[in-house]
Design a protein around this nucleic acid. Structure first.
Lengths: 344, 344
DNA sequence: GTGAAAGCGCTAACAC
DNA sequence: GTGTTAGCGCTTTCAC
C-alpha cells in the first residue's frame, strides 16, 4: 500500500499538503491539488485508517455486542444498525457473547484496545459486580444499552415496551377464549424479561384469570429451551394449557417443534405466540403470531443516540422506549392463512 | 486508558523495559518485572492493539466476507471460524456484501486500510474484470476463497465437493422412485453452482433419466427465489415434478413454503431436498433431507490455511476439497419422523 | 499556500 | 539487564 509519503514525494510536495487535500482542511493551490489527486489515483492510494485513528484517537468503528449469533433477531438488528452506521461513516463490528467465557467487561476492554468509538450493548447477562464495572467503563466509552436492566444510575438505552407488548399478545389470546395460558420466560432476573412477564401476568389478572406458577417456565431465550418448556407444560402440568406464550419467537418455535412432533394441532389444540417477529415466524407452519419489533426504527434511534454521545460525551443520558405491533397469524387464529412470500 | 509511558514512569523504568515484560522479548530483572506487573494491574493497563499493529504492520484480525447475513449457513460458518481464529490469537470481522453497491474489490481495499491480516472470501459474485483485480490484491493480502470459481491461475481455496454431494442427493431421490426431479440452481455461472447442478444432471443421466431444461430454474440462493422456483414448477411445467432439489437449504425451505400454502403434502405429493444442513432443516416441517456440510472441519481447515499463508506469504496455493454427508429426513422419506430437539 | 516537525502508543535496533 | 531513539502513517500546530 502506498503511503502519504509516497504520494507526497511523487507529487513533489510535503505530506502536509497531501493531508490537506485529503481532508479539505485548508485551502490548497488548485494546480497542486490536481496534481496530488492525479498521483493518488495512479498509486491507488488509500489513507491508512489505522494511522489516522491513532493520530486522532478515534477509529470510526462501533461495536455491537449480542448474546449469540443464533437468533436471527440480533443478526437482523445488526444489519439495520450497520446500514445506519455506514451512512454516518462508521463501520460496525459484531461481538457474540455466547462462546468462551469472556465477560462483557473483558470484551469491552478488548474493544477499547482497538479504539472502538462506541458500543451498543444488546444484552447484559453478567452479575451485579460486573454491572458496576460496566457502568464505570461507560463513563469513558460511549455505550448505549438495549437492555433496560434495573440501575441506580441513569444510562442511555433504547428498548421496546415489553410490558405493553406482552399485554397486547396476552389480551389477544384471552379474546380468543383461552384461559389456560402458559408462559415461557426469558432470562429471568433482568428487566426486559421481567417486564414482559409482568405484562402477561397483569393482563391475566385484569381479566380475572389466576396467575399460576405452574404455567411459568423460566428459560433462556434459546430454541431448545422453548422445546423443553413446552414439553414440561404438556407432560407435567395437571391441566394442559390451551395456549403457550413465549418471551421471544425462537422459543415459541421450539415449542411448536415439540407440539408438531407429538401431533398436536396448532392452534386447535394449542395456540402459540411469540415476541419479536423474526423472519422464521413466517417460515414456520403455521405462521407465528407475535409482537413485531420495529427493528428499523430501533436501529435508527440507537445509532443516532450513540453518535450523539460520541460527539458530546457529557450530554445527559436518556431512555427511549419504542412501541411494537401485534401481528396475528395462524398459530393462534386458524382463520389466518399462512403466507410466506415474500419473506422480507 | 493508561499508556505504556504511564506504566513506565509509574514504575520508574523506561518504556522499553515495560515493552519487554509485555512481550517477553528479553530477560528482565525479576524484581523490576514484579514491580511493572503490579503497576500494570493498578493502572488497569491494556496495550493498544492499534499502536502495536501500526508498529508491527499487522492487526491480528482477519475478515470474512459473506454474500448476506440472512443465510444461517454463513452465520454458523462465521461462528466456527471465529472460534478457531480466536484460538490462534486472531479476531474476526464479518462483512456482508448484500447491501449497498460495494464490490468485493472496494470492500477488500477498505479492509486493507484497516490492516486486516487476511481475508476469507466466502462468495465471489463480481464480474470477470473484478476477478482479475481481486487476484491482484491476493498477491499482497492473503486471501482464501471458499468459492471455487474457474480461474486460470491457482488460488488457495477450501470447498465442499458439490458434485459428489449433489450426485448423492439425486441418487437418493431416484432410489425412492422419483423420475420427475426438478432442480433449483444457485447463482449460475460460478463454479460452486455449476458443479452442484452437474452432479444432479450427471446422476440423472446415469440412471437414464432425461435432463429437461424445463426442470431447471436458475435462482440466486435466496429463500424467496426458492418459493418462486417452486411456484414455477408447479404452475408452469407440463408435467409437475414429484421431487424438487435445491442448491441450498434456504431455497428448499422457500419451496416448502409454497407447497405448504397450496396444500401439497410433503413428501407424498412432492419430495423436497436441500443442501447445507442449516439448523432450519430441523425446524421446518417436515424436516429437510439435505447434504450436510461439516462446517466445523471446513472452518478449521480454512483458518489453518489462512494463517499459514499469513505467516509465509510465498508458500504455494493449494486447493482443499471436503466431503459432506447425506442426511435423510422426512421431506423425502415419510418413514423418518421429525426430531427437532436438540437443535445443535 | 506550503513545509518542517511533533506526536499518537507501541516495538526493535542499538548502545551501554 | 536497561535506556535511548527511530519510526510505523497520519494530522496538526507553528513558522514562513
Amino acid at each position: 500500500m502506498a503511503t502519504i509519503k509516497d504520494v507526497a514525494s511523487a507529487a513533489g510536495v510535503s505530506v502536509a499538503t497531501v493531508s490537506r487535500v485529503l481532508n479539505n482542511t485548508a485551502p490548497v493551490n488548485e494546480e497542486t491539488r490536481q496534481k496530488i489527486q492525479q498521483v493518488m489515483e495512479e498509486l491507488a492510494y488509500q489513507p491508512s485508517m489505522i494511522a489516522r485513528g491513532m493520530r486522532k484517537q478515534q477509529s470510526k468503528v462501533i461495536a455491537i455486542m449480542v448474546p449469540s449469533y443464533e437468533n436471527p433477531y440480533h443478526i437482523k438488528l445488526f444489519k439495520y444498525i450497520e446500514n445506519y452506521a455506514k451512512e454516518k461513516g462508521y463501520r460496525l463490528i459484531l461481538v457474540g457473547m455466547d462462546e468462551g467465557n469472556n465477560s462483557e467487561h473483558e470484551s469491552i476492554m478488548d474493544l477499547m484496545t482497538r479504539n472502538v468509538d462506541g458500543i451498543i450493548l444488546c444484552t447484559y447477562r453478567g452479575n451485579k459486580y460486573n454491572i458496576k464495572n460496566i457502568l464505570q467503563l461507560s463513563k469513558r466509552l460511549p455505550i448505549i444499552f438495549m437492555d433496560n436492566f434495573e440501575f441506580d444510575e441513569a444510562i442511555s438505552s433504547v428498548v421496546i415496551d415489553g410490558y405493553k407488548g406482552m399485554t397486547e399478545v396476552t389480551k389477544h389470546l384471552i379474546k380468543l377464549g383461552h384461559k389456560a395460558i402458559a408462559y415461557i420466560d426469558g432470562s429471568s432476573g433482568y428487566k426486559v424479561a421481567n417486564e414482559r412477564r409482568k405484562g402477561y401476568e397483569d393482563c391475566l389478572a385484569k381479566y380475572n384469570i389466576p396467575v399460576s406458577q405452574e404455567y411459568i417456565y423460566y428459560a433462556d431465550y434459546e430454541i431448545d429451551a422453548g422445546y423443553e418448556a413446552c414439553k414440561y407444560f404438556m407432560e407435567e402440568c395437571e391441566t394442559k394449557p390451551t395456549a403457550i406464550l413465549a418471551a421471544n419467537d425462537i422459543m415459541a418455535i421450539g415449542a411448536i417443534g415439540y407440539l408438531g412432533e407429538k401431533g398436536y394441532r396448532i392452534p386447535q389444540d394449542v395456540a402459540v405466540a411469540g415476541f419479536d417477529d423474526i423472519y422464521l415466524s413466517k417460515i414456520i407452519v403455521p405462521n407465528l403470531t407475535t409482537y413485531r419489533q420495529p427493528l428499523n426504527t430501533i436501529a435508527e434511534q440507537v445509532v443516532k443516540m450513540l453518535i450523539d454521545k460520541i460527539n458530546s460525551p457529557n450530554s445527559e443520558e436518556k431512555q427511549v422506549v419504542i412501541d411494537g405491533e401485534l401481528i396475528v397469524r395462524g398459530s393462534t387464529d386458524k382463520r389466518v392463512k399462512d403466507k410466506m412470500f415474500p419473506i422480507n
